[in-house]
Design a protein around this nucleic acid. Structure first.
Lengths: 118, 118
DNA sequence: GAAACACTTGGCAATATTGCCAAATAAAAA
DNA sequence: TTTTTATTTGGCAATATTGCCAAGTGTTTC
C-alpha cells in the first residue's frame, strides 16, 4: 500500500472515529432537525458542560458539524447531512447480529425477517 | 434519555468504532470484491500476522464480517455490504474539509466545486 | 508421527480516549 | 463596572486501544 493511500485511510478512519461514541452519535442525530446550542445538549444528558463541549469539538474537528456564536450561545449544525443515512446501515448490522443471536438460542424471529439487511 | 435508548446508541457506536481504524477500513474495502483469507491481508500490509488476525476479529465481533475455516485457511467475507455505501459520505466530509482549507489559505478549487457533498 | 502451515490467543508496554474539576474567556444583564 | 450566563480550555486520573512477541491450536503434508 502506498503512503498516499495510507493517509487516505487514516483520514477516513478519523471521521468514523469522531462518530464512534454514543454521546456524539446521539448529538449528530439530534442535529437532524436543525441547529442546537450547547446548553440544549447539556440539558438532556447528564454529563458535565465541559464534556459536552469537548464532544462537540471532536465532531467539529472531524468536519461533521459547524459552530456559530450568536450572542452568548454557540450553535452547532450538521455540515454533512449524509452521515445520517448510514445510520440505517449500522442498524442493519445490529439487526443481523440480533437475528443470529435469536437463531443461536433456538428462537425464531419469523418468516422473511432477514430481509433488507444489505 | 432512557436507559434503553442509551444501550442502542452504545451498540451503534460500537459498530462504528469497529470501522474506525485505517487498517480495518482498508480490510472492509478489500472484501468488496469477495472473501479473502488472513494471509491475503497479511501479505499486503506490513503488520504482524497476529495484528491482522486481531483486527479481523474486531470486525467479526461487531457483526460486520463473517469467517469460515476451509482447510488450513480462514476466509473472511463482508456480512453487511451496505457499510461500503457510507464510505462515499465519509469521503464527502473529507472533501468539504479540504475545500474549506483551500479557501482559508486563499486558494480556489474552482467554480461549483462544492457540489454534491450532502 | 513429525514437521510445516495458517492462523489465534495471552501478555504487555506504548499510546489514545474519556470525563470530571477548576480556571479562563466572552458576551449580555444588572 | 460588576455580575451572571454560556461556553471553552487545561489538567489529570481512569480506562481502552494498539501492535508486537511468544506460545498455543487445528490441519494438512511428509
Amino acid at each position: 500500500m502506498k503512503a498516499e493511500d495510507k493517509k487516505f485511510y487514516e483520514a477516513k478512519a478519523a471521521v468514523l472515529k469522531a462518530l464512534a461514541h454514543p454521546t456524539r452519535l446521539w448529538m449528530v442525530e439530534q442535529l437532524e432537525t436543525g441547529e442546537k446550542c450547547v446548553c440544549e445538549f447539556a440539558g438532556v444528558i447528564d454529563a458535565d458542560f465541559s464534556t459536552v463541549s469537548k464532544h462537540l469539538n471532536v465532531l467539529k474537528q472531524a468536519g461533521i458539524v459547524a459552530d456559530e456564536k450568536r450572542g452568548k450561545q454557540v450553535y452547532y449544525s450538521l455540515k454533512v447531512p449524509c452521515v445520517l443515512n448510514f445510520m440505517h446501515c449500522v442498524e442493519a448490522v445490529l439487526s443481523a447480529r440480533a437475528m443470529e443471536h435469536l437463531s443461536m438460542t433456538g428462537q425464531t424471529a419469523g418468516r422473511n425477517s432477514n430481509r433488507g439487511l444489505s
